[in-house]
Amino acid sequence: MLEGELNDDSLSKIIDTKIHLNLEIDKDEMYWEQRARQNWLKLGDKNLAYFHICALARRKANTISKLVTEEEKDLFKTNGEADSCKVLEGIDRIITQEDNKFLLDPFQKKRSR
């Protein structure tokens, strides 16, 4: 049949064939979707279960259940000896003697600078 010879009967057959083909494709897709769902329900998602197990093990390993202090380290205690000069060595002095005297003077209600 040539392109120019298309009539109503041949167009009708082409449309019916396309509709039948689309229905068969839909049936095939539905079959494979049902098959995949059936396999998933039967076997589960093995990768998901594996990763959940790994995450649970990692969470358990990274959990801090308690803090233990060791007596010989005493990280947060002082022996009472501190040299404030050493602490202040790295800090530049930017307050002048005059400002320091003003700051150390007793508070007065009205004072001019």
Rank of each mutant, 00 (worst) to 15 (best):
L103Q: 04
N79A: 07
E3C: 06
E24M: 10
K13N: 11
N79W: 00
H20Y: 00
T63Q: 10
H52E: 10
V68Y: 12
Q38T: 14
K73Q: 05
L11Q: 01
E3S: 09
E33Q: 04
N47W: 15
L67I: 15
L67A: 14
Y31T: 13
Q108G: 02
I94K: 07
N79E: 09
E81C: 01
L104N: 02
H20A: 08
L48W: 12
M30F: 00
E24S: 04
A82V: 15
L67T: 15
V68C: 11
E24D: 07
D9C: 05
S10N: 13
L104R: 01
F102P: 01
I25A: 01
M30E: 05
Y31V: 11
A61S: 10
R93Y: 06
E29N: 03
N100K: 11
T69S: 11
G44F: 07
D9E: 12
T17L: 12
D74M: 13
I53H: 12
G4S: 15
T17N: 04
L56Y: 10
H52Y: 14
Y31M: 08
W32C: 08
K110P: 05
R35V: 10
E33G: 07
I19C: 05
I53S: 10
T63D: 08
D26K: 03
M30P: 09
A55S: 02
T17A: 12
E81M: 05
E3W: 03
L21P: 01
K66W: 15
H52F: 13
T78Y: 11
R111S: 03
A61Y: 11
W32I: 13
L104Q: 03
N22V: 09
A55P: 02
C85M: 07
L21W: 13
L75C: 14
S65R: 13
Y31W: 13
A36V: 02
T69N: 10
T17R: 09
R58W: 05
E29W: 05
Q108V: 01
E70R: 12
D45P: 00
E98A: 06
T96I: 08
Q108Y: 06
Y50F: 13
A55I: 01
Q108C: 09
H52R: 13
E24R: 00
R35T: 10
C54L: 04
T69H: 14
I91D: 08
M30H: 04
G44I: 04
D26A: 03
A36H: 01
L2A: 05
D26Q: 00
D26P: 05
F107G: 08
I25H: 03
L67K: 13
E33L: 12
E3A: 07
C54G: 04
Q97D: 03
K86H: 06
I91S: 00
D16I: 15
I91Q: 01
S12W: 03
E72Q: 13
C54R: 00
